[in-house]
Design a protein around this nucleic acid. Sequence first.
RNA 1: CGAGAACCCCAGGCGAUCGCUCCCGGCUUCGUGCCGGGGGAGGAAAGUCCGAACUCCCACGGGCAUCAUGCUCGCUAACGGCGAGGCGCGGCGACGCGACGGAAAGUGCAACAGAGAGCAGACCGCCUCCGGCUCACGUCGGCGGCAAGGGUGAAAGGGUGCGGUAAGAGCGCACCGCCCGCCCGGCGACGGUGCGGGGCAAGGUAAACCCCAUGAGGAGCAAGACCAAAUAGGGGAGCGGAAUGCGGGUCGCCCGUCCCGCCUUCGGUGCCGGGGCAACCCGGUCCGGGGCCGCUUCCGGGUAGGUCGCACGAGCCCGUCGGCAACGGCGGGCCCAGAUGAAUGAUCGCUACCCGGUUCGCCGGGGACACAGAAUUCGGCUUACGGGGCUCUCGGCCC
Length: 124
Amino acid sequence: MDESLRRADRLRRRADFVRCYRQGRRRHGALMVLHSAPNPTGGPRLGITASRKVGNAVVRHQVKRRIREIYRRWSARSRLPSLDLVVHCKPPVGRASFGDTERELTRLLRHLVGAVSASSGGSS
RNA sequence: CGAGAACCCCAGGCGAUCGCUCCCGGCUUCGUGCCGGGGGAGGAAAGUCCGAACUCCCACGGGCAUCAUGCUCGCUAACGGCGAGGCGCGGCGACGCGACGGAAAGUGCAACAGAGAGCAGACCGCCUCCGGCUCACGUCGGCGGCAAGGGUGAAAGGGUGCGGUAAGAGCGCACCGCCCGCCCGGCGACGGUGCGGGGCAAGGUAAACCCCAUGAGGAGCAAGACCAAAUAGGGGAGCGGAAUGCGGGUCGCCCGUCCCGCCUUCGGUGCCGGGGCAACCCGGUCCGGGGCCGCUUCCGGGUAGGUCGCACGAGCCCGUCGGCAACGGCGGGCCCAGAUGAAUGAUCGCUACCCGGUUCGCCGGGGACACAGAAUUCGGCUUACGGGGCUCUCGGCCC
């Protein structure tokens, strides 16, 4: 399958982030919080936030790259509905391993696929 | 071998798979997507502490205030940086460190201790003389003289010695130190076993105020330039509604409000002058109010958003020449990140090295690990931090 993740697949405007926080659903994990809100673009978009509590610039960039990589290579990504996603990092993620981060993120994303497809089926 | 001291260098490498971003070329159903090739974090990218380039704003000149710098000569686009030198301090030494102008302009400050701390001073002490006691040495008291010795302090008004004296004192002398002038050396800071003069005055603190010299306009790439929705608002023109303006001040600028003047209009049996038999009319003056709304059309500013600024530069590398050096000249070669919720990555092999075992072939485990991520760009400084090389110093041992 296509594993590319280009500019259009990422969240790039402050307004989109704010919309996710205000109107979106939330799912909490030990390492991160996942916000999600429907978007009209026809495909999922990903945004990642990491405050300075997570670590210095090197740590924050590493965490964001790992999350982007996990999302990019996630096998069920193509089954996601048209959603804007924001992964907000919590401080412990700076010390977590790649494996732990991957387990947590995929668990949160899996819940999302099931929940949204069920609710959209019920409403239509 | 052990302690140190300068200077310089590196910041893993190779491969596989899947991705991101920029540039070039080709194809393009022009969605800008594919295909091929190439570039893609640091020595500090950091702190944002200095200095500049660049951009906009302001500006006639001068002064005040504020801030910064502060030995000399160089280097540099510039600097609060760097190099060399002087002086002082620290270290056995290699070497390191230093806001390193002025305290004989003024003002202020100095805890505690101490007799006394800024027109110095007398606690213990030293001494002549007088008096008491004593055979005497001496001792006690008093008028005075003194500051050598002790003691206090961060600091007590040159040091050592000799002379001198009742005891003392630059009181006198010698040497050392200090201050002033000259001479000599040095571009200069400054230095000199140089010459002459002065008994020594002028304590400390200027990262206390201050004085002196020199320098500084402000804001910053979210600078700034261009394109430009939606909504709201501004300006011009035309038409319609009884009537339907203009100029100036206030302000950093614009709009509004407010204020002033002129014009116009409405009201007040207002007031003054003139006219008329009169209703009233004309001119002036005083008080109060109004000087907009709707539609059509055009124009400009501007927000979101986008493009540029934005990657050839005080550039890097090599050689050579000048200079102790910082650095500069000349010649040749190279093109070296440009993201913007922010790319430069993730995972997996092998490998230096480390640990354990060893039949010395190797096997098992760990595995590149410190500080740390460009954001307009340079030159520095400072701070954080892993490792290596070379030279030098001191000490120990061996030949």
